[in-house]
Write a protein that binds this DNA or RNA. Structure first.
Length: 576
DNA sequence: GCCGTTTTCGGCCCGACTGTTTTCAGTCG
């Protein structure tokens, strides 16, 4: 997508302008960058569709920005940007990822020491060339050394599923302290983003010192790098930072609102406060110098005329308007889920690591589900002992018997028969239709030849959805968080076909997290049904449903959009 | 540079911390 490239460029232009001390323009470029990033349509298509006029309808894009975009689309370059880059050819994303380093310091480092990237920076700090620079010092140099060391170990953001269980454990420990009145997670972790920068805790306590001491001595703390009267920051050996803040009870709600973010959401809420002649900060909502709200998030939102909204949608992506118009979504919840339909069993097992259908069913019952579906890999997928037509028929019979035994014992639980078939290069399915039609449902997914031309890939997927036996499109875009980009495809056409053929799109809860939140929102608005699956290869992975739920919630999905919130009788009606 | 039923000009979120230039710029969330 050109959007991401342009977003990156606009962000960098903002940095250049910031260095030159230009006022307000950096903010405009940043806003344009954020706006582009959140767009579902590729600007190249927007431009073809409606030219300059359509571009300027994008929020934050005006005369000058559309100039830049047009130039970029036509020539692949933006002169304005290239000139700036010539003057200061540094790797912004690398250098800015270092804690404590901003545009101005980066400029000094380049001009005085020729530092262009992290590698250069490591060299000059080793020679102690940084401390003597004007505006730097011993402490700054030491912080750079520490920052480089930390980056090397953590390499950026961590996955939600790696951090959330860990952070929840710590939260429970803090909760148990008798000095603690209130505690909550905040930040991107509370918003359940796909990846997390650091972990934020917010605490109300009469004895902050004691809580802070406890926090700094938690197992796994490698280094305490910031400690004041009300705030402590630690590096964890797991490779991320944790912050703990103690706030007064009367500001707990406003602090929670503030530290939960997102930053864009905060800016938007503060603007609303200003419009009402109020001021919103982490300390509360103020009318003049009088605090009129702050103890709870609900009263903070109420004081500025908004309804409380779930952290997952606080991205300034329309939630403020929805709140004003009483149109906030009733987001789907974990407890709404009645079953999981993407589960692999030991029937396809090659290495002896998978669980039996019986064990998976038991796990499903423990989770309070009414049903699970078994969906082993088929013919073409060679990394597993994939099931052929004969195996599938045999498995159907086997599951039938298990269901009968449940019935006999009065257990109200059903195992559905499915498979995860492969979509071949030409869009055909690697299992005979005759056999597919005997299953309760069929999941189809792409597991080979990920790199194809956009048009060809779109046709391939559309053809698979048109198969009258294919009910569910597995991990529709092929992305894996932090590992693999999505396939080139026309998502609008995919959505249209999904709607026409009644094909359900999967929200895969594994590290794929595919569909992405923006696509979920588009699917919802087009009336396309979705299904949250775990893609379990080992029974404990069935617990990952909560990450699919978070993903769905960030995509504004409601219970009615997600079909595995339905009873088994209703569910079966959705299948072709 | 963008935006607008309070404006086509004059605004642009807010506060805290850190380290160094010892009064405040730069950075962060």
């Amino acid at each position: 997508m050109k959007n991401q490239e342009l977003s990156k460029i606009f962000n960098e232009i903002a940095r250049f302008l910031q260095i030159d001390g230009v006022a307000f323009k950096p903010y405009a470029y940043e806003k344009a960058a954020i706006s582009l990033e959140g767009l579902s349509e590729d600007v190249a298509e927007t431009y073809v569709r409606g030219g300059r006029k359509a571009l300027e309808e994008i929020p934050g894009i005006g005369r000058a920005m559309s100039d830049h975009i047009e130039e970029y689309l036509k020539t692949g370059k933006i002169k304005f940007y290239e000139e700036m880059k010539k003057k200061l050819p540094v790797k912004w994303d690398e250098l800015l990822s270092l804690e404590g380093l901003g545009p101005k310091k980066i400029k000094v480092l380049y001009e005085k020491l020729g530092v262009k990237n992290l590698k250069d920076l490591a060299k000059v700090v080793k020679k102690h060339k940084v401390a003597p620079l004007f505006g730097f010092g011993e402490k700054t140099e030491e912080n750079i050394v520490q920052g480089l060391d930390f980056l090397k170990r953590s390499k950026g953001r961590s996955l939600l599923k790696d951090v959330l269980p860990f952070a929840t454990e710590i939260l429970k420990k803090i909760e148990k302290l008798k000095e603690v009145e209130k505690v909550s997670l905040a930040g991107s972790l509370r918003r359940k983003k796909e990846t997390i920068g650091d972990v934020d805790f917010l605490v109300v306590s009469k004895n902050p010192k004691k809580v802070m001491k406890f926090f700094c001595n938690l197992p796994g703390v490698e280094k305490v790098w910031g400690k004041g009267g009300t705030k402590a920051s630690v590096h964890m050996k797991e490779g991320f930072d944790m912050d703990l803040r103690v706030v007064p009870l009367k500001s707990y709600g406003s602090a929670l609102q503030y530290f939960t973010g997102s930053q864009d959401h905060n800016i938007a809420t503060r603007k609303i406060a200003i419009e009402k002649g109020l001021k919103l900060s982490e300390w509360g909502v103020f009318s003049g110098s009088k605090q009129i709200a702050g103890k709870t998030e609900e009263e903070v939102y109420k004081a500025i005329g908004l309804k409380w909204m779930s952290p997952e949608i606080r991205e300034n992506g329309g939630e403020i308007e929805a709140s004003l118009n009483h149109k906030l979504p009733q987001l789907v919840e974990l407890k709404d889920i009645k079953g999981d339909l993407h589960i692999h069993s030991n029937w396809e097992d090659l290495k002896g690591s998978k669980d039996s259908i019986e064990m998976l069913a038991k796990k499903g019952m423990e989770l309070g589900y009414e049903y699970i579906g078994i969906s082993d890999h088929t013919n073409d997928l060679k990394v597993e002992k994939s099931l052929n037509e004969k195996h599938i028929l045999k498995q159907i019979e086997y599951i039938k018997k298990l269901n009968q035994s449940f019935e006999k014992r009065g257990i109200k639980f059903k195992i559905l028969t499915g498979c995860e078939a492969n979509i071949r290069r030409d869009g055909t399915i690697d299992v005979e239709d005759e056999v597919l039609s005997k299953l309760d449902y069929v999941i189809a997914g792409i597991h080979s030849i990920h790199k194809m031309e956009k048009e060809e890939m779109t046709k391939r997927i559309i053809k698979a959805m048109q198969n009258k036996n294919v009910d569910i499109l597995a991990h529709p875009t092929g992305r894996i968080v932090g590992e693999r980009e999505e396939y080139l495809m026309d998502f609008d056409k995919i959505l249209k076909t999904a709607y026409e053929t009644g094909t359900i799109l999967e929200i895969n809860s594994s590290t794929r997290l595919d569909l992405r939140d923006l696509y979920i929102r588009r699917a919802k608005s087009e009336g396309v049904k979705m299904l949250i699956n775990t893609d379990t290869h080992k029974k404990d992975q069935m617990d990952f449903m909560e990450y699919g739920i978070s993903q769905a919630r960030r995509g504004w999905a409601e219970k009615k959009d997600i079909i595995n919130t339905e009873s088994v009788e209703n569910l079966l009606k959705y299948f072709k």
